[in-house]
Design a protein around this nucleic acid. Structure first.
Lengths: 69, 69
DNA sequence: CATTATATACTGTTTTAACGGTAAAAATAC
DNA sequence: GTATTTTTACCGTTAAAACAGTATATAATG
C-alpha cells in the first residue's frame, strides 16, 4: 500500500474531530472494537466498516495506477 | 467514497493485465468468489483481500482529507 | 455452427470478523 | 495526590465472509 500508517492517520483525524473511539463507532454505525482494530491496522476488517469510519472523518479514498496517472 | 466504480476499475486493470478472475485470485492468494464479489462492488469484503488484489494489479490506494490536502 | 474458455450464479461448510460485556491500563481532569 | 475518562485488552457468542464445488450463462475461438 503506502508508507502511510492508516491507523495513526485515522486516530489523528478522530482526535482532531474531538471524538472518542466509542463516539466514532456510534457515528459510523459499527462497534467500538472495530474502531480499535482499524486504528491498530488490522487489515482483515471489512471494507465497508473502514469506509464508514473514513466517511465520518471526511477522509477520501483514491485509487491510482500507472495507467490512470 | 468516490464516483469511481471500483469494481469496473479493477476489472479493467485485470483485463489489461491479461488475467482471468481465477488467475487473479490465485496470484492474490484469495478465492475466485471474492474476486468476483470485489468486481461486483461488494463492500463487505475484507480489506486485506481487496489490498491483495490491488497489489497484484499495481494499483495504489491513497487517503486524503481536507487537512492533509 | 460447435467447442472452449471465461464469467456469473447458487449452495453448504468452515472460518473468522463483528459485537457487547467486562476489566485493566493509560491518559486526562479535578 | 485522587477521580474520571478514555484507551487497550480479552472473551464468548453470533452473524456473515470466504471458500470450493458445481451449474448455468455468456463470450471468445476454431
Amino acid at each position: 500500500m503506502n508508507d502511510l500508517d492508516l491507523g495513526v492517520f485515522i486516530k489523528d483525524h478522530r482526535k482532531k474531530a474531538g471524538l472518542t473511539q466509542l463516539q466514532l463507532a456510534d457515528l459510523a454505525g459499527i462497534g467500538k472494537t472495530t474502531v480499535f482494530d482499524i486504528e491498530k491496522n488490522k487489515e482483515t476488517v471489512r471494507f465497508n466498516n473502514l469506509l464508514a469510519v473514513l466517511q465520518v472523518l471526511n477522509i477520501k479514498i483514491e485509487f491510482k495506477s500507472p495507467l490512470t496517472k
